[in-house]
Design a protein around this nucleic acid. Structure first.
Length: 284
DNA sequence: CACCATGTTCCTTG
DNA sequence: CCAAGGAACATGGT
């Protein structure tokens, strides 16, 4: 479930549930997700410590850890990769097959589950160094976006996935933001002019904030995984509303009519990933 | 069996 | 040194 909006909704959901709680045990079932932190170091740092806050940077979750002794607070960095989930389960609940890390919190346990193990749960903060501006913060301006595009010959869709340009856009919202701004995904980044950069800037912000708003209206249950796909990309709400049906305008809609003009949505491959767009609304 | 999947990182090539 | 392209990571769904 991982692009900026989904991570943001998850963070808002988990923050109050985790705040002030003490980590009583640390069970590392897939050391790979800790890379490069060792299981031993993670256990030493977390056992007996308290969760003092949860925030987000790009697609990363930042867990503020208050150590048991009088040591400096540290940050635990989480990333959901392609298939990661984080939620609380009752103490004795049966763990999912792909539980990667489990934190014992007393009556409940915090579970980081990740089928493909592409995600992270680490003390390595250097990951954050490579991130560009937060798209929903004032630091991200149309001018900054334009400047970031200026020297790249890459197709704009590919460039939007570069986390050092802007943090948090993934494969789905890259296609969606380009559709909203009427820009072809194939356009070379450096050829985006000031007017289009401004439109794209605005489309990125609206696309992401609309997705956060939508995610916030979805009933997240206790486990945060419950009604399953609801929080994620493809679920069906019980009373399937039109606005929900049309939430994603182009992603995964190959061969279906564009909601704006009726043309067939196309799928192409860029940098080995699918891109969806409307040839009529997003001409070259 | 084939191809597809919300992401990042490493290696090679130019 | 840098940009760009592709493979790798690992598992599951269709």
């Amino acid at each position: 479930m991982p692009e900026l909006p989904e991570v943001e909704v998850l963070v808002r959901h988990l923050a109050p549930l985790l705040r002030h709680r003490t980590i009583l045990s640390v069970d590392v079932r897939r050391p790979r997700v800790l890379r490069p932190t060792s299981p031993r170091e993670l256990k030493r740092t977390l056992t007996g410590a308290r969760l003092a806050g949860l925030s987000r940077r790009g697609k990363y979750l930042l867990f503020k850890i208050r150590p048991r002794a009088r040591a400096d607070a540290t940050i635990l960095v989480g990333h959901l990769g392609m298939t990661g989930r984080m939620y609380l389960l009752p103490k004795k609940a049966i763990l999912p097959k792909h539980a990667a890390v489990v934190l014992g919190l007393g009556e409940e346990q915090f579970v980081f589950e990740d089928t493909r193990y592409f995600g992270r749960f680490t003390l390595d903060l250097t990951l954050l160094d490579a991130l560009g501006p937060e798209p929903l913060n004032p630091e991200f301006t149309a001018q900054a976006l334009m400047a970031g595009l200026a020297r790249s010959g890459q197709p704009i869709k590919v460039k939007l996935l570069d986390q050092s340009l802007v943090a948090g856009i993934g494969n789905i919202y890259a296609s969606e933001a380009l559709f909203r701004s009427g820009i072809s995904p194939k356009a070379p980044a450096r050829r985006i002019n000031a007017r289009d950069a401004s439109r794209l800037w605005s489309a990125i912000r609206r696309t992401l904030s609309d997705a956060i708003q939508f995610g916030s209206t979805v009933p997240l249950d206790y486990a945060g995984a419950g009604e399953k796909e609801l929080l994620f990309y493809y679920g069906r709400l019980p009373g399937t509303s039109a606005s929900y049906e049309e939430r994603l305008q182009v992603y995964d809609r190959k061969g279906q009519p564009c909601f704006k003009c009726g043309s067939m949505i196309r799928r192409i491959v860029q940098a080995a990933r699918s891109t969806f767009y409307c040839p009529q609304c997003q001409p070259n």
